[in-house]
Design a protein around this nucleic acid. Sequence first.
DNA 1: CTAATTGTTTGCATAGTGCAACTATATGCA
DNA 2: TGCATATAGTTGCACTATGCAAACAATTAG
Lengths: 193, 193
Amino acid sequence: MQTISNQKPSATKSDSATPGSGNSELLQLETWLPYRLFRISTRVADVLNAFYGPKYGFSRSAWRTMAIIANRPGASAKEICQAGGLDQFSVSRAVKQLVELGFARRTSGRSDRRYAAIELSESGWAAFTEISNVAKRLDADLTSAVSSEELALLDGILARLDNASAGILARGWRGATEPVADEPGAPAAKRDA
Amino acid sequence: MQTISNQKPSATKSDSATPGSGNSELLQLETWLPYRLFRISTRVADVLNAFYGPKYGFSRSAWRTMAIIANRPGASAKEICQAGGLDQFSVSRAVKQLVELGFARRTSGRSDRRYAAIELSESGWAAFTEISNVAKRLDADLTSAVSSEELALLDGILARLDNASAGILARGWRGATEPVADEPGAPAAKRDA
DNA sequence: CTAATTGTTTGCATAGTGCAACTATATGCA
DNA sequence: TGCATATAGTTGCACTATGCAAACAATTAG
């Protein structure tokens, strides 16, 4: 590999501006926590997608949807949205895809017929089981890098980070650092350090 | 909110297949580590995107590219690819976007004129600084949910998970659980528990 | 009965992605 | 020198994904 440049910002040639502006340290993407989490998760998700994508022909949204309805058979589209962090359009299209491929079906035989009530078919369960096994193996592969004590620690830390991230999302980029009302679905966690 | 269904899989009505197939436990998306990491990271990234997107008019790839060249002024497109986990097309288009918006420039005055040598302009540094500050605040917001000891622990754990995920990516979904040769750019880490 | 509300779908415009083909530069070698 | 080959980067094109408005269907309120 041929390294072209490895200058520090301060060594930038004069017509390129320097950070300056009262900014003590440059942000480094590689050490920014959300980016680190992103890298790990997308690598694994990409590998899983490389399995189910070609084999079953559905999208990431469809896989997420499938995984959600596997745990909540008969869920409505709205419930899937909430559980999976997907918007209603994605869910609608994902369900459509799964139904067309024969992995899911809609049964609207309830009192309120606005709701969809989606569940997996035989082949849907088969596909889910197979993808799950790969997912579990990847997870085991990933977590084999850390001890079980660390994993337990990580579990607690992630629960709180998840909670904090929900707060950040709710407040938006303007948001001051204020506690936010409990979000539904997230495990209760104290922000106390 | 009107809850329609909350059945457990085992209570599924009879024409819907049950997991069965020698599968001891259903995979739960919410507890699958890569998904948990994904949720946290995308929430924060979405919020940051909601800041720089409308304000500066560039994409996520462009922001990543900007952050990378801020730390490596004069980097070539190829270096940006490697550092940011982006493919060459994304980088090419991201750089184009940044140049068109006046945030970066290409200077190919080196010995090897195939390389691009990209750096931020004055306004590029200004934008980067401003976005960085928001990013740092979000990070601080996020990490305020855990103690500094836990954060240090997390740092080490993530370093190893990052390493493991690189191995998973390299091996693909077929990959057995074998150690993989050192990847460039990742901090050295032992897989020992 | 009508209006408002809720759950879901769909069409359309836009944005992002992957791939092949292309330009330009550099290198190896006869 | 001349020509094949390799490398860096760009661009066109097809395809996929996403966001939004609008439509549609079922329910509830007045």
